[in-house]
Every structure is written in C-alpha cells, then in structure tokens.
Computed example of a mutant assay.
Amino acid sequence: MPRAKLLHGSPDEIEAAYYDALSRADLEALMALWADDEEIVCIHPGAARLVGHVAIRNSWEEILARGGLHIQPRQLHAAHTITTAVHNVIEDIHHPDNSQPDVHVIATNVYMKTTQGWRIVTHHASVAPGPAPSEPIAETMLH
C-alpha cells in the first residue's frame, strides 16, 4: 500500500499494512507505519521492552533477516476514540511448510492519530498458553 494512501488511512488499514510488511520482510514499509515519537514501544514475545525507533528498528531488522513472518491476525477486539485505537488480536503464526499454525500469540496494537495520520505507538505480543481458541468472537467497537 503506498505511503501516501496510508497518511489518511484508518487504524484497520495501518494494521493490514503492518502484517503485509511483516509477510514481505519489508523493514522500510514496516517502520514507516510507526509514529515519529521516540516514546513508541514494542514488546516481542518473551523479550524485553524496546523503546524508540532505533531499538525497535534493530529488533525488526534482526527478526526479518530470516525472511517474512506469515501471521494471520484474527478475533479482533477493537476500542476506538477520535485519536486512539486499541486492537487486540490473536496472531496465528505459520511456517510455509506447515498448514497448521505453529504457535499463536496474543497481540495488542495501539494506534494514535498524528499529524501524519494513524500510526503505531505500541505493539505488545506474548505467546498464549494452550491451544489457539477457535470460537469466533464478534468484533466490538467502543466509541
């Protein structure tokens, strides 16, 4: 998705572009989705909290050096205000040679409306215990 279109995109479009950039191992596209604020935060499963562009970029560069991540987000639970959106999803992580998800992760993505449009300010993911839940959860939007 062209960056110009994302300038006025919705949190849902930014989230779709995020998972698309991960699947393509496109570090530049991924980092363009983050807010310019140095207080941005990223927590990978089982890892320490990363704050700021340099730390977050370095971590994604290391992760994506092994290739794209094939993540299917599902069971979105969303809370939106005029300037903030919080999305909680279950991420099914697939390896290309396996049709079943290898692991599922619970992730929270926080977006803020900035002068550049909607941007990621927090990504927090953790490995979920037990089997992935299969029951559908209705999408909920709080205003």
Score class of each variant (00 low, 15 high):
N88Q: 14
N88Y: 04
H87E: 04
A128W: 03
M112F: 03
I56W: 00
L30C: 06
A79W: 05
H104S: 13
I40D: 06
A79I: 13
A138L: 14
A32V: 01
E38M: 03
A65F: 00
S134E: 12
C42D: 11
I90G: 14
Q100M: 14
A29W: 01
V41R: 12
W118K: 04
A32K: 07
A4K: 09
H94P: 02
Q100E: 15
H124Q: 12
I63G: 04
M141T: 14
S59R: 12
P45T: 09
H87L: 01
A128L: 02
L142N: 10
P129A: 07
A65K: 13
V51E: 10
D36K: 10
I43Q: 09
A78F: 01
L69A: 10
N58S: 15
S59N: 10
R3Q: 12
G52H: 02
A138K: 15
S99G: 12
L50P: 06
H53V: 03
R24N: 11
E61I: 00
L142C: 08
I90P: 04
Q72G: 07
E91R: 05
E28P: 02
G67H: 05
T122D: 05
W60K: 07
I71F: 06
E62T: 15
A25M: 01
L27N: 11
A17F: 06
L22F: 01
L6Q: 11
V127T: 14
N109I: 00
E38S: 13
H80C: 13
L30I: 02
P133T: 07
T81P: 02
P101H: 15
G52I: 02
L33P: 06
A48W: 04
E135W: 01
A35R: 07
M31Q: 06
H123F: 02
P96C: 08
D97M: 11
H80M: 11
Y111A: 04
P129V: 02
R3G: 01
H70Q: 14
